[in-house]
Structures are given as C-alpha cells and as structure tokens.
C-alpha cells in the first residue's frame, strides 16, 4: 500500500498544471497517479469501515445466524428483537449504563471545560508569582498516563470513602491539564489585551470581565475543549473499572465487558446482546462527533499546525 507512483509527469505538463489546471484537462500521467492514490485510499477506507459494517450486520442477527451465516452479510432480520432483549435484560440495566456514561462523559467534560477555561485565561492574561511554575506543571503532566494515576487514586479514594460512588469517577474527570493548555492557547489567540484594558477602564471587575466578555468570546475554544474531553471520557474504561463495584453505577464499556466475560463462564449466551449493545453504545459518541466535527478537527490539528 505504498504510494509508489508509476510515472513522473514531464516538466511542461506539471508547469502548465501548476499555473492553470482545470480539473477536466488533466494529462495521462496525472491520471495514473490519481488512480494509484485512489486505490490506496479505497483500501484504507475498506479497512476502516469493514469492522463497523460487521458490527451493524451482526446486531441484526439472532443467535443461530450469528454463528452460522456469513458475518459480512445479513441473515434473518432480528434487530428489533435484539434491541428489546437488550433493553429489558436484567431490568433494563443497559439503559442505566448508557445514562451513567452520558452523565460521566457529559457532566465531567462540562465541569472540566469551565475549570479549564478559567485556568487557561488566568495563565494567559495575568502575571503573578507561580504562574510560570503552574504552566510548567500543566505541560509536564501531559506525559503522565492517566492509567498510571488510577490505581494510586483508588488507594486514596478508598481511604476517604469515595470508592464505588459516582464521584470517584467524576472528580478525576474534572481536572485535565490538556484542557487547560488547549484553553490557554485559545485565549492567547482570541482575546486581545486591549479589550481587557478597556473593560478595566470602564470599571469592570475581573470576574465580571471574565463572565461577560471573555466567556462569550471563548465559545468556540470551549466547545473544542468540551468535545475532546467528552470523547476521552466516553472512551475511559480503566477508571470506572477500577473505581466502581456496583453494576448500577457502571459505564456502558464496563457493562459490555462484563457481559463479554460472563459469556465464557455462565450458561447464558450474551454474545448477541453484547454485539447489539456495542452498536448502540457507538451512537451517542457518533452523534456528538459528527454534529460538532468542526470543533474537534481544529482541536486535533492544533498540535500539528505551526
């Protein structure tokens, strides 16, 4: 799948293309080059999409078809039955997991965004002792893998009785050095010092300036921080797995994992439920990502530009 391109276009062709290249007037070598590029991209696209296709197809199958029919094509259409058994199994525990995940991912990201924007603004626009150290701490802790903190956090939380409460998952999600750094970068780029100076001359206090002037201007930046945190929270598996014992507080990821493990141990075959549940658990994340794509794209690429 390497981009070995078959033929070099002649110099004139390229020159002409460089200056006036209407898409319709492309010469042959350029076409062949594009052909190879397209083949490569189609292969990559198939690779990326095929497992999701498998997931969609197999969530429509009953247990018999799951094991006996071609995995890449539909069998008897059984999606509605699967959905109803998914949502009713164990008194609808799956819906509860979905609700919990939305609470952890959304609530955690929301609070974290507010904390991060405030801190990013503070680190960007003010000068006080400890600011430099604070910034260094923020950047330095990017390198600390969150997984590594989790077991020590569990030891600490079990000491103060927080383990197995929703707070044991939420509180760690409130704090994100990455969010602060991203917010600071946005403040650097969008809030002019003159504006703050003008607000001061008009007698606006710092907190009022922050809430009434800075926050509205930071809407795009805050949305980007929120969405990236939301995705990261939705993906977080290790934290809830470590902190939570009672299945009523689990996230959908921990729940699906428990079903997956159970199917090896108990007489109930939960495979069909796990597959349908896996498909459903993708939907909220996909909705958020697709509807807010212009925000997270800029966030992801922020690190690469410049």
């Amino acid at each position: 799948m390497t981009a070995v391109l078959p033929e070099k276009p002649t110099r004139e062709t390229r020159d002409r293309e460089a200056t006036t290249a209407p898409a319709t007037k492309r010469r042959k070598p350029r076409n062949r080059e594009q052909f190879v590029v397209m083949i490569g991209l189609i292969l990559f696209a198939l690779y990326s999409v095929a497992p999701v296709w498998w997931l969609i197809v197999n969530s429509t199958k009953n247990r018999r078809d799951l094991y006996n029919t071609n995995g890449l094509w539909f069998g008897e259409f059984n999606l509605w039955n699967n959905l109803s058994s998914l949502f009713t199994y164990n008194n609808g525990v799956f819906l509860r997991w979905m609700g919990n995940t939305i609470l952890y991912a959304g609530g955690g990201a929301l609070v974290c965004t507010i904390i991060s924007v405030a801190a990013g603004y503070s680190l960007s626009k003010f000068n006080y002792r400890g600011r430099g150290v604070g910034l260094a701490v923020v950047i330095g802790s990017f390198l600390v893998p969150s997984t590594l903190i989790t077991v020590p956090l569990f030891l600490l939380f079990s000491q103060i009785g927080l383990v197995d409460t929703i707070w044991s998952v939420l509180i760690p999600l409130f704090i994100s050095p990455f969010g602060v750094y991203l917010a600071k970068t946005y403040v650097d780029g969008t809030i002019p010092d003159e504006l703050l100076e003008a607000a001061r001359l008009d007698g606006s206090g710092e907190f009022r300036t922050f809430i009434q002037i800075v926050m509205p201007m930071m809407r795009t930046g805050a949305a980007t921080v929120f969405i990236l945190l939301f995705v990261s929270n939705w993906n977080n598996f290790f934290l809830p797995l470590t902190m939570l014992r009672g299945s009523d507080k689990w996230t959908v990821g921990v729940g699906l994992y428990s079903w997956f493990v159970d199917k090896n141990q108990s007489y109930v075959d939960l495979t069909a439920l796990t597959i349908t549940g896996a498909l459903i658990s993708v939907i909220p994340l996909a909705i958020v990502l697709i509807s807010m794509q212009r925000y997270w794209r800029t966030g992801v690429t922020l690190g690469a530009l410049k």
Binding site: V144, I149, L153, E206
Partner: peptide
Amino acid sequence: NRAGAMLAVPFFVGFVFVFVLP
C-alpha cells in the same frame, strides 16, 4: 493579577487532589 490568579485556583486545587496526592 490577584483576581486573575483566583481563576486558576479551582484547577490547581483539583490538580493537587487528583494528581499530586495520589
């Protein structure tokens, strides 16, 4: 600057609680 520094307090207090203390 003092007021501005206050805005960073929630983050750093939380940071101590979920990063440094553990």
